[in-house]
Nucleic acid binder design. Structure first.
Lengths: 100, 100
DNA sequence: TTGACATATCGATAATTTGCGATATTATAA
DNA sequence: TTATAATATCGCAAATTATCGATATGTCAA
């Protein structure tokens, strides 16, 4: 967990939103056939629609969040699903309380 | 408290360090004649020395941290002292736990 | 008042980030 | 196989950030 990388990832309105939306995905995303969003996550297209930005941008933002350790990914067929990585998020909370 | 502004302020090694040093200033800064660092804070020159960057840069970094609400300032004579703003820091911790 | 510090601000250049369109890659279904 | 859909990556221009030197501003002491 690289604090600077994490804070950079969080320094952007869209990326903050993605992370927030993923906290309660059923509330924010339109369902995906036979996928439990809570367990599996949401795919890039779902995020793209919600963000109202290009697929390219959505994909990159998800990638930035993932490299920072804030979300994790699972490929199922031609879809890539992303969901929150609660462990890392807790770690950052701890870092914030102890080091900052 | 503007989360994006806060995370941007924290997205820099030097600024993170300043904030960390200020947590226990006596441990990290050389004393200033008759000033209780814990109560009053440390001045720009002290931070400049510790940072090993120019006075200009140190002053700007302190200003960025202050605008983000992470530190507060008090001018005494020709010195400007900065210390942590624990209230805001707590607020951000809460934001992090609740919104992110 | 003037000189000497401490700090803030301005203007500049290099580096990084933003967000896009175009294209490459991967996986499925026909 | 091939057409198609989903995703990733590349290369770009615009915007923002990093860091500096130079200079302005504020404050005290002589």
């Amino acid at each position: 967990m690289e604090p600077i990388e994490v804070f950079k990832a969080l320094s952007n309105e869209s990326r903050l939103q993605i992370l927030h939306w993923l906290k309660d995905p059923e509330k924010h995303f339109t369902p995906h056939e036979g996928i439990d969003m809570r367990k599996i996550g949401v795919c890039v297209s779902q995020v793209t629609d919600k963000l109202k930005m290009t697929q390219s941008t959505a994909s990159q933002y998800l990638s930035i969040l993932q490299r920072a350790g804030l979300i994790k990914t699972e490929r199922i067929g031609k879809y890539t699903y992303y969901k929150r990585n609660e462990e890392t998020i807790r770690e950052i909370g701890a870092f914030f309380n102890n080091e900052i």
